[in-house]
């Protein structure tokens, strides 16, 4: 079954069409990568899939586990199991990481899980990821280094355990050690029930999270699709050689 499906999706930003008739299907258990230069529309795609109000979806549909989630509120999408690890997580001074995580989990899990259990899971998971306890009392993403921000995105991925996760440039701005720990964490969360869309413009994260399919995005469209070897071709030859072709391999 397709865990995630994007059908004929078009998105305008400030009146300009950035994503153009975009389609992609991902089966449970699969990892897909989208690679593309800066400005090719990767973040526009991911933010609009999650429902950011600044991105105007002009046509198309999005399905999660077969359910049409196109018009759901952002929080509803999250509760149904869609996760977006953001490229630039916004700072929220005055909201502590701990409070934020507890509130998020309470909202997603409802009253099923007692607060003490929520607290324990956050603590345990942070410990596993070698995130110091003091970190939980800091203001959310406020004054965080690039690495800390992405580590926190990955901690949320792990705690929320979504059905489908879009990770937008989780690798950018990280040094080699941070990249390795974050990428290995993502890799460990692969499962036959879960799908991933890894967005990047470098090949290196894909060494740790081996994709089943790689898609090349130029100007808001997939121009080429292939197996993991495509990432290596891109690495050595760059995007210049990729001529826009019809979006056919996306269904893979």
């Amino acid at each position: 079954m397709n865990i995630f499906e994007i059908k004929n999706f078009s998105v305008n930003v400030e009146g300009k069409e950035i994503i153009k008739d975009f389609s992609l299907s991902i089966k449970a258990g699969e990892v897909h990568a989208i690679m593309g230069k800066n400005g090719s529309g990767k973040t526009t795609l991911s933010m609009s899939l999650m429902g950011h109000p600044a991105y105007d979806v002009t046509s198309g549909q999005v399905f999660l586990s077969g359910e049409d989630i196109t018009d759901l509120d952002t929080e509803e999408k999250a509760r149904k199991g869609l996760f977006l690890g953001m490229q630039h997580p916004v700072a929220i001074p005055g909201v502590s990481v701990g409070n934020f995580l507890r509130t998020a989990l309470k909202n997603v899990w409802g009253d099923k899980v007692p607060v003490t259990e929520i607290r324990k899971r956050i603590k345990d998971e942070a410990q596993k990821m070698k995130i110091p306890a003091e970190f939980l009392s800091r203001s959310l993403n406020d004054g965080f280094s690039g690495g800390e921000k992405k580590k926190l995105e990955t901690l949320q991925l792990s705690l929320l355990a979504p059905k489908f996760a879009i990770m937008d440039e989780t690798d950018s701005g990280l040094d080699i050690d941070a990249l390795k720990s974050v990428a290995e964490k993502i890799h460990s969360l692969r499962s036959p029930e879960r799908g991933f869309l890894i967005i990047t413009h470098y090949q290196r994260i894909l060494n740790y999270v081996k994709p089943d399919y790689v898609h090349v995005m130029i100007n808001g469209k997939i121009v080429k699709s292939g197996g993991p070897e495509l990432a290596l071709v891109l690495e050595s030859e760059g995007y210049e050689g990729m001529s826009p072709v019809k979006n056919e391999g996306a269904k893979a």
């Binding site: 999250a78 509760r79 909201v95 929320l160």
Partner: peptide, 8 residues
């Protein structure tokens, strides 16, 4: 958006 994207 950030908070809502986490189900809040």
């Amino acid at each position: 958006f950030y908070l809502r994207s986490r189900g809040i």
